[in-house]
Design a protein around this nucleic acid. Structure first.
Length: 287
DNA sequence: ATGCAGGCGCGCA
DNA sequence: TGCGCGCCTGCA
């Protein structure tokens, strides 16, 4: 693969906010505001320069199409931000803070495994585990005298035994990743079939049949792996911020998940997932 | 050093 | 159906 380059106008595109808002695990900041990441069979560097965004790297195909798709360039974020800002003053504030966030179009398979690993885990450790899995089972890509590894396909990951995964630091999630991979390999569930299902409730239900996938992980898969903006993943941070803004209970752990979900649906509707990203990022970064 | 971090699955009312 | 608890591991 040969190196390609692409320059676009910087409209609603802030690398730091995109890569650090919690949706992805494989983008690393190298020097001031330049990020490198692996997605699909591509390795890309992204840099902001004044009013331009510069993409440079090795791609499987045309860099313009790949960037357009992955970075969701066809979605009008200004419109989304306007709508959300009008709904709620708190949200308006968090949008201002996280201006330039975009919800990436990430690979469904990678999202399923990554968010299973994320359960009861912290981000640095999640990142390390995913890097180790990629290095062990993914495909090597050489570029600029550096070595990168793709996230393993289900076939590649199926070579891992439970104990191998344990040795890579997955902890109790080892069997979840193993069993989930096995289900896909055996054809009990298929990625292509999942993508054809429109009904989110049905999708969530199916995802939750996968070992290691509960409500929170399923919602993250839906939002980040299937671009379903109407879901509202509720983790400790979101619970915290929603309680502070609306429920105002003494003990946030006492707030019912259902209560938060209902409120999010009523307030944010079809854009709940977007709202979640701004609120989550804002709360976590200013905590 | 103990508790905690972007939950899940299980057992028990 | 709903709740409480244990769980791998690394890091402060």
């Amino acid at each position: 693969m040969k190196e390609q380059k692409l320059v676009i106008d910087k409209i609603d595109f802030e690398p730091k906010h995109i890569f650090e808002c919690g949706q992805c695990f494989r983008w690393y900041e190298e020097e001031n505001n330049r990020y490198t990441g692996v997605f699909g069979n591509n390795v890309l560097k992204v840099k902001k320069e004044e009013d331009k965004i510069i993409f440079q790297g090795v791609c499987e195909g045309d860099i313009k199409q790949i960037v357009e798709d992955y970075f969701d360039l066809k979605t009008n974020y200004q419109e989304i931000k306007n709508k959300l800002s009008k709904m709620d003053d708190y949200l308006a504030k968090s949008i201002e803070f996280g201006n330039g966030i975009r919800i990436l179009n990430q690979d469904l398979w990678e999202m399923i495994i990554s968010f299973i690993i994320s359960a009861n885990n912290n981000i640095p450790r999640i990142q390390k585990i995913i890097e180790r899995i990629s290095k062990e089972y993914g495909t090597k890509i050489m570029w600029n005298n550096n070595t990168y590894y793709t996230f393993p396909t289900k076939e590649q990951l199926s070579h891992a035994r439970i104990e191998d995964l344990r040795n890579l630091g997955l902890g109790f999630r080892d069997k979840y990743v193993y069993e989930t991979t096995k289900k896909f390999i055996k054809g009990e569930i298929s990625l292509e079939e999942l993508k054809t299902i429109k009904d989110v409730k049905k999708l969530r239900q199916i995802l939750e049949t996968l070992p290691g996938v509960g409500p929170k992980v399923a919602d993250c898969i839906l939002l980040f792996g299937m671009h379903r903006f109407e879901v509202f993943p509720i983790d400790v941070w979101v619970r915290r911020v929603m309680n502070e803004l609306y429920m105002k209970k003494e003990d946030e752990t006492k707030v019912k998940k259902q209560e938060i979900e209902n409120l999010a649906n009523i307030k944010y509707g079809e854009l709940a997932g977007m709202a979640q990203q701004y609120l989550f990022y804002w709360k976590r970064e200013t905590a």
